[in-house]
Amino acid sequence: MTRLRTAILISGRGSNMDALIAAARDPSFPADIALVLSNRPDAPGLAKAKAAGVATAAVDHKIYAGREEFERSLQIVLETYRINFICLAGFMRMFTPWFVGQWRGRMLNVHPALLPAYRGLDTHERALADGAKIHGATVHFVMPEMDEGPIVAQAAVPVLDDDTPETLAARVLAQEHVIYPMALQLVASGAVRVEGKRVLGAPAPDDASLIVPDATLARRRIS
């Protein structure tokens, strides 16, 4: 089996990075985490990735005059490591259409809300302010527009009466750690396909909180 050479892009501690690296330790997992790349040379996640035996690199966005100049340097690093797929995991930079075009259909992001609701920042605060009863997380393909793109997987969590943004964020993050490796597995294995704005695959799972093609099979393979 040829495993998909995947880079994880981070800006901070890399919580979802940890989950992806852990899943990819299984030789049967269809993606190999070949690089962790950050726009911040001091990102704590770089040290964690190095300790896990994953190659690391940093391209400091602050030294570039514009976004595309920065992205072209990113592209050179990705090509040097022969990367053919990207997972964004807390990467706090918006990409230009040029970069997204280089990776169209080959780049995933995880967002702490049930898209298309609550695009952008402060999702947990906004959900609580709106009185939402259900919140969650989404893994989607990346498009030039913020938090757009065909949805691969979602997980829902209830909003409790005594929730704060911090407690709600913690439960959502736990679900991100479940659905992100699952989504990468489904995409890397070719189990799903994109038609227009939809990601199509096997029938929905029995677990209604995990909205993902063939999630039961994916969970069994990861565990």
Rank of each mutant, 00 (worst) to 15 (best):
P144Q: 13
G45Q: 08
R93W: 06
D163A: 09
L20I: 10
P44S: 05
T56H: 03
P203Y: 08
Y118P: 01
A113H: 01
P112M: 00
A58M: 07
V142A: 05
L78C: 08
I63C: 08
V54W: 01
D147F: 04
L210H: 10
R82L: 10
T6P: 03
R13C: 00
R3C: 10
T164M: 04
P41N: 10
A117V: 01
G105D: 03
R67W: 09
A137G: 03
H140E: 03
L200K: 12
M94K: 03
E69C: 06
S15T: 12
Y81Q: 07
A24T: 11
L184I: 09
P165Q: 14
I222C: 03
A155D: 03
P116C: 04
G196L: 11
R193T: 15
I21L: 06
L200A: 15
R126W: 04
M92C: 13
G45I: 11
R119W: 05
R193P: 01
L168P: 08
A132W: 00
G14Y: 00
I86Q: 00
A113M: 02
D122V: 00
L160Q: 15
V157Y: 06
D26W: 02
P165E: 07
T164D: 06
L184P: 10
N16V: 09
I63H: 10
K62T: 13
R5W: 02
D214P: 04
A127G: 09
V199K: 03
D161Y: 06
I211L: 12
Y180F: 11
L160D: 10
T138I: 03
L4C: 11
P44G: 05
A170K: 13
A137W: 01
D32H: 11
P144L: 13
P158C: 10
S28G: 13
A52N: 11
G190F: 09
V36C: 01
R126T: 01
Q102K: 13
